[in-house]
Amino acid sequence: MSDRRARIVHSPHVLDFVSHSAAQTIRVGQRLGELLQRGDLVALQGDLGAGKTHLIKGIALGLGSADMVNSPSFVLINQYRAGVQRDGMPIYHVDLYRIERMAELAGIGLEELLDGDGVCLIEWAERAEGWLPAERLDVYLGHLSETKRVVRFVPRGRRYEELVDALKKAAFS
């Protein structure tokens, strides 16, 4: 565990970002959404109120979706449609808040979402640790103050390293 953390810190592809408001979290999400492609997986981790749903609102906007993005805690999976410029591909918004053990993941249909016909965004992804594909974009969100949040993008695999590099360029240069 500590090995892995050390590697993250030294990776040149990791991106840290301090958001000063929910609106700013949405905007960075939007930049990320513009770069996502069919088959991409974004795994979000962070406490209640850390801004996971806000980031996903932004990602959906960036993908050109006009759908209302809200918390899928009850049904576990919400599905939205990306804009026409993205061929209206599905955006899967998964919330594992209610899942406490890996065994409970059976039967919610997560496997099908990862088949690659759309973009998959997973909140409380730590609850599916060991089950998710090794190649993905991990996003960690944490509280700094009542309005400030720290957001850390950690790419796993080549595709996602390129993605984070592109995000750095798009959002911060």
Binding site: L76, Y97, R98, I99, E100, R101, A103, E104, A106, G107, I108
Partner: peptide, 11 residues
């Protein structure tokens, strides 16, 4: 006991 609803258990 799970603090939420477990889909597999529910079905």
């Amino acid at each position: 006991r799970y603090g939420g609803i477990v889909p597999e258990v529910a079905s």
